[in-house]
Every structure is written in structure tokens, then in C-alpha cells.
């Protein structure tokens, strides 16, 4: 097997903020509009795609985030089910009911947890976390320190932050620096 090299993101714990790399994770971008699409995805994943803005659905295997009215992201630990992408691609992309794209390496998952994480994110994000932090399961796309991110409120004060791989080290360093000044 080829060696895997993850971005340089190590565990940091400061001022009630815990920052961790949360890989390996499979991430799949799912696009589609019609009924057949929803039925098929639902069947394969045993999950109903969230239709409400800025929300997510989860079951024991997957988390699915709403990204836009015809776009979702599903993510899960790599060791859970490695051929779900192939299944989805075969039944959705190949049959032209939507689009399935593997973005596992496109995004890096950084887990941030602790009491002060929303303070931390607010240093660099114009997003209003008021509702978000009171609702476990919320998801949103926004900017943190000018970098696009997807945020998933996994459990109370525990957020999975997804950022493009190329930005991830820079954003991580910025998060670490910011956590000094909470």
C-alpha cells in the first residue's frame, strides 16, 4: 500500500478548545433533484436526505449534510463501508439520476470541541452561531479566516469542520493561534 500523508494537523488543547485531525473519513458529494434520485439514495444509505436548510441527518453509519437544495455531502469513517461510493455511483451516476463524486481527499475533517469553540470560530467568521450552537445536528457553509468551510454540529460543543485540503494547514495554524486569545 502507498503511504498516506495527511496535512500537518496535530492535537492541540488550549483554553477549553480541543483541535484534532479527524481522518480517515470518506466524503461523497451527492447531487440530484428528481424523485427517483431521492428514493435510490434513501435505499442505499437507509437515510432520508435532509431537505431543510442548514441541517443534517445521521444514522449509525453515515452523516449527511445539506449543502444546497440539490446537493448533499455524506461522510463516514473509512473503515465502515468502503464500497458505498461504488454502489452510489453505479445506481445514481451511471443511471443518470444524479451525480456522485468522491471528495474524500478534497476535504479534510478537523474536529473542534470544547466550551469555547464558537468563540474561536467567531474570531474569523461572520456567521451568527446563536442558533447553530443550540442545535446539535446543524450544518452550515461559511467562511473562517476567509477560507470556505463546512461545519457540522456533531454533538454539544463538538463540531466537525471540513476544509479543502490545500487550505487545511493554514486554517489549522490560524485556529491554533486564535485559540491563544479566547
Amino acid at each position: 500500500m502507498l503511504d498516506i500523508l495527511h496535512p500537518k494537523i496535530s492535537n492541540i488543547n488550549k483554553n477549553n478548545i480541543d483541535i484534532n485531525l479527524s481522518e480517515e473519513k470518506i466524503k461523497i458529494n451527492i447531487r440530484g433533484k428528481n424523485k427517483e434520485f431521492f428514493t435510490k439514495v434513501g435505499k442505499i444509505l437507509s437515510i432520508i436526505l435532509p431537505s431543510e436548510t442548514n441541517t443534517s441527518s445521521s444514522n449509525e453509519n453515515y452523516d449527511v449534510l445539506w449543502l444546497s437544495p440539490d446537493e448533499w455531502m455524506i461522510y463516514f469513517d473509512e473503515n465502515k463501508n468502503t464500497n458505498i461510493f461504488d454502489q452510489l455511483y453505479k445506481d445514481i451516476s451511471t443511471l443518470n439520476v444524479g451525480s456522485i463524486t468522491d471528495i474524500s481527499s478534497q476535504l479534510i475533517c478537523i474536529n473542534i470541541k470544547g466550551e469555547n469553540i464558537f468563540e474561536l470560530l467567531s474570531s474569523g467568521s461572520p456567521f451568527n452561531f446563536e442558533k447553530f450552537k443550540n442545535n446539535v445536528g446543524s450544518s452550515t457553509q461559511t467562511l473562517v479566516n476567509h477560507i470556505d468551510v463546512i461545519l457540522h454540529h456533531k454533538s454539544k460543543n463538538n463540531v466537525n469542520l471540513f476544509v479543502r485540503r490545500s487550505f487545511s494547514e493554514h486554517l489549522y495554524e490560524w485556529l491554533v493561534d486564535s485559540s491563544n486569545f479566547i
Binding site: 436548510t53 442548514n54 444546497s68 437544495p69 461572520p126 456567521f127 451568527n128 452550515t140 457553509q141 461559511t142 467562511l143
Partner: peptide, 17 residues
């Protein structure tokens, strides 16, 4: 800095647009 009500995502800061 506007606050724009995205018809899909709700009120967001102008810098997202």
C-alpha cells in the same frame, strides 16, 4: 456590509456572497 437573506440559507453576511 449588507446582511443578505439568501432564499436558501437565510440571513448571511455580505462577505459570503
Amino acid at each position: 456590509m449588507f446582511l443578505i437573506n439568501c432564499p436558501f440559507c437565510g440571513e448571511r453576511d455580505q462577505s459570503e456572497f
